[in-house]
Design a protein around this nucleic acid. Structure first.
Lengths: 229, 229
DNA sequence: AATATAATGTGTAATTATTACACTAAGTAA
DNA sequence: TTACTTAGTGTAATAATTACACATTATATT
């Protein structure tokens, strides 16, 4: 986020696209700005890079300030540097996406003064965004579309124990298309990184599905093997 | 390149990894620095982002100043922002790679004052590099390894007319491994983006190979088809 | 207790893609 | 004419992908 700076000339900021999976929907975290420019608009959370932190540190700090979370999959994906992208000066922004496990309980931390509130919003129903944030979001979504095929980021979105149908839902939401159930299961299980638990889904009407767990140890062994989920 | 700045505090620069294919070798362009810090060291070409140019414009300007070339495949791939990566201040650098057709004739343009000379150097025989440029180079090489499988960047390295063996050489150099000739040809031709010319290689001892041309129109039609060279 | 409901969970055949592998053909140079 | 060097070609085995439909199970309702 590039907030109002008293007469700045030039700065570097971080903007974050935080993805979460909740209620069967893919959502991102947006804040409603409380300051000019773009007061009352929705925007991606972000902030300036401090002079004594690396850009990675800055991204993790911003995430932590916003959500209180520290153990999150986060990756830099592009730097946006059009001259006029910020109306009040030159701000080059480095975009990160992060992938969060949304437990309904996970409250957002107090926000900085330039935001009224923060909210998880379905990526299919985004409002108009401030600055070039629509563009930044779109590039981020493209990025995770490519990533999900090669890295197990889907499991970062899911709770520790999940059903195969939930995994498939995540893939379908991110890729934006339906997948065949039998083929999907065959493939996802073929990597041997899911562990079937001796446990069933609870609190659900109708037949309960078997729960699985992602096995990081087994995944680590595949490193360099060019797997393709 | 982050040159000596009189007492700067903070800046954004561009560093470029320029790849070229010449004499059967994959090379990058390096400059020998003529200024502190890292005087007499080899470094990636780069410069500061001007206040009235976008970061993309800046990258193309630097490329053009260095080589005189404008019609080149160039892509941003990562931003490096460790606090101490430049000994004289905070410099966040945005890395681009570019892919150049090296015609033996293509002379390098006059260099800026902080470089003694520029030279194309085989990526397998790189000297120690200034700053974190070794790291920046390695990330760039990884990037084009992934890219070459999905985008026709190999053809950006080759002359307009080329033989299939030359294409294979480019793939082998970038991927760093040998490929089977028959399988490679079958695959590369199967995309239908190479046009066989009614023309043979010239000036070569031994049997001359058939020349091919890359067909951008046909490639454009494949857009979105997820092809995998 | 019986029934309706809704999601789980499973297999096979056809097609396509990938891999491994070795010799003949053609042009040049001596 | 011969030796040399690179070009150019096919097939069989294996692996991966796709298309496709129904019985099973747990719950909720009557």
């Amino acid at each position: 986020m590039e907030e109002v700076l008293p007469q700045f000339n030039s700065a570097v900021s971080i903007d974050c696209v935080l993805f979460g999976f909740d209620g069967g929907e893919l959502k991102i975290l947006l804040i409603e700005r409380n300051e000019e420019p773009f007061k009352d608009w929705w925007a991606l959370p972000g902030n300036l890079v401090g002079s004594n932190e690396s850009v990675d540190q800055s991204a993790f700090r911003i995430l932590q300030e916003l959500t209180g979370l520290t153990d999150v999959y986060m990756e830099q994906y592009y730097t946006f540097g059009e001259v006029d992208r910020h109306p009040q000066g030159r701000v080059i922004t480095i975009a990160y996406y992060a992938i969060l496990r949304l437990g309904g309980d996970k409250a957002l931390k107090p926000l900085s003064t330039f935001a009224k509130r923060a909210q998880w919003i379905n990526v299919r129903e985004l409002p108009r965004l401030a600055f070039d944030h629509q563009h930044i979001f779109e590039k981020g979504l493209e990025k995770i579309k490519r990533r999900i095929k090669h890295l197990p980021i889907a499991f970062e979105l899911l709770p520790e124990k999940f059903t195969l149908t939930q995994v498939q839902n995540v893939y379908e939401l991110i890729l934006g298309k339906k997948l065949d159930k039998r083929n999907f299961r065959k493939k996802i299980l073929s990597f041997g990184v899911l562990k079937e638990l001796d446990e069933k889904q609870k609190g659900v009407s109708f037949r309960a599905a078997t729960l699985y767990r992602f096995d990081k140890r087994k995944y680590a062994k595949l490193y360099g093997k060019e797997i393709s989920f």
